[in-house]
Design a protein around this nucleic acid. Structure first.
Length: 416
RNA sequence: GUGGGCGUAGCUCAGUCGGUCAGAGCGCCAGACUGUGGAUCUGGAGGCCGUGGGUUCGAAACCCAUCGCCCACCCCA
């Protein structure tokens, strides 16, 4: 093969896109019901947007971005996630002057230069929602409930919702000091990654998966112990709302979102027993994000779900791929009847009957064979003999029976 | 970025100690007294055996490199 697709991308052929369309239909319906409007932003943005909106200290920005320089010398980046672009669009289009809150959702491809493996690709797809302008804990609960509702609608069971609160910059400053006190003396026991985190972002030490770091962090202070009164109250209200919505969750005191503009609620949706790749989605509150990219202080909360990982669960649990659509009616010719067949086919399609023909001028036998393989329920044989009587032969492919029908009424017979 | 496995027809794969090994099944196309399907039979098309070097009289097979795919780690979705 001369040219193959770029690493970590995939060609979705008709038998696969059927599953995607189903998932997308659920997304659109759910978002309509919950009151979210769809937003479509560019696939690439100024690199700076992600540096500020995702965070310089993150793996995404440090090593996973598809960044290039365009002909005007601007640094652009294929979007690695959807929240920063949505936030940018919210500001740029003046949505902060619209009635608040503004509730948006998006579905589309994201790009990260990671090493591909099962359920992880360089071009992958996310479904996400964002609520801008609502500080109410009920908003946190709503997006979480929406995410869980989505999986429920797809028939996916057995997911775990992990929940935590990382507090606000105020209470986090206290925590940070305590973490430094705790880990400082143990720096020697930590993995290389965590050693460097110790200085810049000690919160991240809490959710390192290395055994040695977990051991060192066993007695470490966690955000929940240092929440200020307001953050504590908020978290309590989020949990209360989830109970009202009958969404079960598990408190995970080590669940963390590292950057400063992530505040309070943090959550992740996990598939138990899938190793290091168990996250199908996650989200939280980001009351500092709008400000971080240059806007006013507007609170926000949202989530992003991985669709490839979701599809993996759909096909695993709900059984397999769906077949491509049947043509239903196939128009075959026998003899010099092409023109009549062409018109008949057009009439069938005009009234919405899925119909097809073949274009190779093959024998009737070959046409029948092709029609059967395509899964046609009916074949209309337009033959010279029948045409002399103004008729065609209508064959029921399932039953193997056929009758002659007048050319005038065949469309009506097949319409239903 | 790190580690492991694998790269032979569209697909799934055989190819034994290097010497008619370029193959099978499925799929595709065609035919079986030429206007009728999913069965059967027959035939056909289709492969620089991932790529580039090397070893050898001779390599799909052995060695090196490279690219790609898969899986795992890190991290995430």
């Amino acid at each position: 093969m001369l040219i193959s697709r770029p690493r970590g991308t995939s060609d979705l052929l008709p038998h696969a896109t059927a599953g995607w369309q189903r998932v997308e239909a659920v997304i659109r319906d759910l978002c309509r019901v919950y009151g979210y409007g769809e937003i479509r932003t560019p696939l690439f943005e100024s690199t700076e947007l992600f540096q500020r909106g995702v965070g310089e200290g993150t793996d995404i920005v440090e090593k996973e971005m598809y960044t290039f320089t365009d002909k005007g010398g601007r640094s652009l980046t294929l979007r690695p996630e959807g929240t920063a672009p949505a936030t940018r669009a919210y500001l740029e289009n003046g949505l902060h002057t619209a009635p608040q809150p503004v509730k948006l959702y998006y579905v589309g491809p994201m790009f990260r230069h990671d090493r591909p493996q099962a359920g992880r690709y360089r071009q992958f797809h996310q479904f996400g929602v964002e609520i801008f302008g609502a500080a109410d804990p009920a908003a946190d609960a709503e997006v979480i409930a929406l995410a869980m509702h989505f999986f429920e609608r797809l028939g996916i069971a057995g997911l775990e919702l992990h929940l935590n609160s990382v507090g606000c910059p105020g209470c986090r400053a206290v925590l940070r000091a305590k973490l430094a006190d705790h880990f400082g003396p143990r720096a020697g026991e930590l993995c290389a990654n965590c050693k460097s985190r110790l200085g810049k972002n000690p919160l991240r030490l809490l959710d390192c998966k290395e055994e040695q770091c977990r051991a060192a962090g066993r007695e470490a202070p966690v955000p929940a112990d240092y929440l200020c009164a307001e953050c504590g109250g908020h978290f309590e209200r989020v949990r209360r709302n989830l109970e009202l919505l009958e969404v079960s969750f598990r408190l995970n005191p080590c669940l963390v979102r590292g950057l400063d503009y992530y505040t309070r609620t943090a959550f992740e949706i996990l598939v138990p027993g899938r190793g290091a790749q168990d996250a199908v989605g996650g989200g939280g509150r980001y009351d500092g994000l709008v400000g971080a990219i240059g806007g006013p202080a507007v609170p926000g909360v949202g989530f992003a779900l991985g669709l490839e990982r979701t599809l993996l669960l759909v096909s695993k649990q709900a059984g397999g791929e769906e077949p491509p659509p049947d043509p239903v009616v196939f128009v075959a010719t026998a003899g010099e009847t092409e023109e009549t067949a062409t018109v008949l086919l057009a009439r069938l399609r005009a009234v919405g009957v899925p119909a097809d023909r073949e274009y190779a001028g093959r024998s009737l036998k070959a046409q029948m064979k092709y029609a059967a393989k395509r899964g046609a329920r009916w074949v209309v044989i337009v033959g010279e003999d029948e045409l002399e009587a103004g008729e065609v032969t209508l064959r029921d492919m399932g039953a193997g029976l056929q009758v002659r029908v007048s050319l005038g009424e065949v469309v009506e017979r097949l319409r239903s």
